[in-house]
């Protein structure tokens, strides 16, 4: 393995790691607040390793949503990764099978964006570079989760220090991150109305699946705004 490539990867991933750190800590604190132990929170960060969906997972778990629906929601929020792995397939075809497995495990939004850019510019995407970039984000993500979870355990009433508003605001930020996408407004408006109505008439947790389904069906039925160009898969902001 090439040490220079590995170091270049470490350097490239470093600013991303700094930007993601508060979110790792936030996840740890909110996970404990939603009934996780410190070990559970760390275990989730180490195995799922997808910030937004981890937040969704703890939010639904804290609201006693059925497990299959929690897993389905995590799957849905991470669905964009299907596009990522399809898109970078051509740049990592020289990886061995084991290297590919590890590469896909580490495929978070910035990892995708950097790999895509590197490949497009004709720079070699070596496994050493990919691993360096991935590990400098992955390892601190776990450590920050631990720190946040320990802090979360020290807090008595999360509401008195305003922790309870952070998840809805975080999710709002993620929704806004998608606002350049096709059919954003009709999809969001439909899912909003449907989930509010479902919360009132059916009750939690069904508002998640009913609201999401309404927006997704609308997107499938509406005529397309414009043809998507190949390779136009965009990266949304995510922790």
């Amino acid at each position: 393995m090439n040490r220079d490539d590995f170091r270049a990867g470490l350097r490239g991933g470093f600013p991303i790691m700094l930007a993601a750190s508060p979110f790792g800590a936030l996840f740890g604190a909110l996970a404990v607040d939603n009934g996780f132990t410190i070990a559970d929170a760390v275990f989730m960060s180490a195995t799922v390793y997808a910030g937004a969906s981890q937040m969704v997972g703890i939010e639904l778990f804290g609201n006693n949503v059925q497990p299959w629906l929690v897993v389905l929601s995590v799957f849905a929020v991470n669905f964009r990764h299907v596009l990522y792995s399809a898109s970078i397939a051509k740049y990592i075809s020289h990886f061995s099978f084991g290297q590919k497995l590890l590469a896909f495990f580490l495929l978070v939004d910035p990892q995708y964006a950097e790999t895509e850019q590197r490949g497009e510019r004709g720079l070699p995407v070596t496994f050493a570079w990919y691993l360096g970039f991935g590990l400098v984000i992955y390892v601190p993500w776990i450590i920050n989760t631990l720190v946040g979870a320990i802090f979360g355990q020290l807090i008595g009433d999360p509401k008195s220090i305003g922790l309870d508003v952070l998840l809805p605001i975080y999710f709002l930020g993620l929704v806004l991150g998608f606002r350049k996408r096709d059919r954003f407004l009709p999809v969001v408006a439909t899912s909003a109305v449907a989930s509010i109505a479902a919360m009132h008439f059916v009750g939690s947790p069904w508002h998640v699946s009913i609201g999401a389904l309404a927006g997704i069906l609308l997107a499938a039925v509406l005529p397309p705004e414009h043809r998507l160009q190949q390779g136009s898969t965009t990266v949304e902001k995510e922790a």
Binding site: S191, A212, I216, L222
Partner: peptide, 24 residues
Amino acid sequence: RLEAALNAVPAAVLTTLVAPAFVY
């Protein structure tokens, strides 16, 4: 149409976690 539906999945799911929190 499948691509359009898939493209809408994350915003649709996340909206259901935002809108009810805002109203209730």
